[in-house]
């Protein structure tokens, strides 16, 4: 469904992605792990065409989306993205945040868009927040709204960039619950995450990024219990140690 082929990205002569290859099958959940600065966010932003790749290609449903003639807006209609800092629109209510793209990009009628939005809100336990403004919500609620906003356009693939790292542990649980439910519903997802326990539970494939190189990929069992690469072992050990402290 999504194929990333030898993707490079540089900033000011410094490579952030160094020839990344990755394939995502329909209904697959891929977790990107790796140290801060290893290029996880950059990779997701490249898939969403928020960054232009400096080499290589990305294919979505067989179509090259990194081609010069592709319309980025057209690609983004098929993708959903959730950011670490939620990025809700502060001047709109929860309902307006969710309905904006369905109405203005996909041409859904107002009543229909609102009905769908309310359904989604109810499904994720936020029915009573429809008319609230984002600054009245807790971090976990805001992030759940951001996920619903990304879902509301019916994306083929959801990109989630460290959606829990700005949250208190208690709020992390509710957001992870949403993602778990999406997986059960068969949603295809790529998640950048620091939550190793969650990656272990939810991922079909775990990819370890190190300095812009996709160093190792495998099933969660393999990566977390028997990592092949010394760098992966080192990274997982350091994560374990920091947990203990």
């Amino acid at each position: 469904m999504l194929t990333i082929e030898n993707v490079w990205k540089h900033y000011h002569g410094h490579s952030v992605l160094r020839g990344v290859d990755l394939t995502v099958r329909p209904h697959e959940v891929v977790c990107l792990i790796g140290a801060s600065g290893s290029g996880k966010s950059t990779l997701l932003r490249c898939v969403n065409l928020l960054e232009t790749v400096d080499d290589g290609a990305i294919y979505l449903d067989g179509e090259e989306i990194t081609a010069v003639r592709t319309d980025p807006d057209d690609v983004r209609k098929r993708l959903g993205m959730v950011f670490q800092a939620y990025n809700l629109f502060p001047h709109m209510t929860v309902l307006e945040n969710i309905c904006l793209a369905p109405r203005k990009v996909h041409g859904t009628g107002r009543a229909e868009a609102e009905r769908q939005a309310r359904d989604l809100l109810a499904r994720f336990g936020l029915a009573d927040k429809a008319t609230a403004y984002p600054d009245r919500l807790s971090g976990g609620q805001q992030q759940r709204v951001a996920i619903i906003r990304a879902l509301a356009t019916g994306p083929r693939l959801l990109l989630l960039d460290e959606v829990t790292s700005a949250l208190d542990p208690a709020l992390v649980t509710e957001v992870l619950g949403v993602i778990r439910e999406l997986k059960e519903g068969g949603m295809t997802m790529i998640l950048a995450t620091h939550e190793m326990g969650f990656a272990k539970e939810i991922a079909d494939t775990v990819c370890f990024l190190d300095g812009g190189v996709l160093l190792e990929r495998g099933s969660p069992e393999q990566i977390f219990t028997a990592p092949r690469e010394p760098r992966t072992q080192e990274f997982l050990r350091s994560v374990l140690e920091s947990r203990r402290l």
């Binding site: 969403n48 928020l50 980025p72 807006d73 057209d74 983004r76 209609k77 993708l79 959903g80 993205m81 950011f83 800092a85 990025n87 809700l88 629109f89 904006l100 793209a101 203005k104 990009v105 996909h106 906003r149 990304a150 356009t153």
Partner: peptide, 19 residues
């Protein structure tokens, strides 16, 4: 990041500006 969020939803430049 507000623009990034809007663009990621598929809104074009004009729509991002306007809404």
């Amino acid at each position: 990041s507000q623009r990034a969020a809007a663009r990621s939803l598929g809104l074009g430049h004009g729509q991002t500006m306007r809404y």
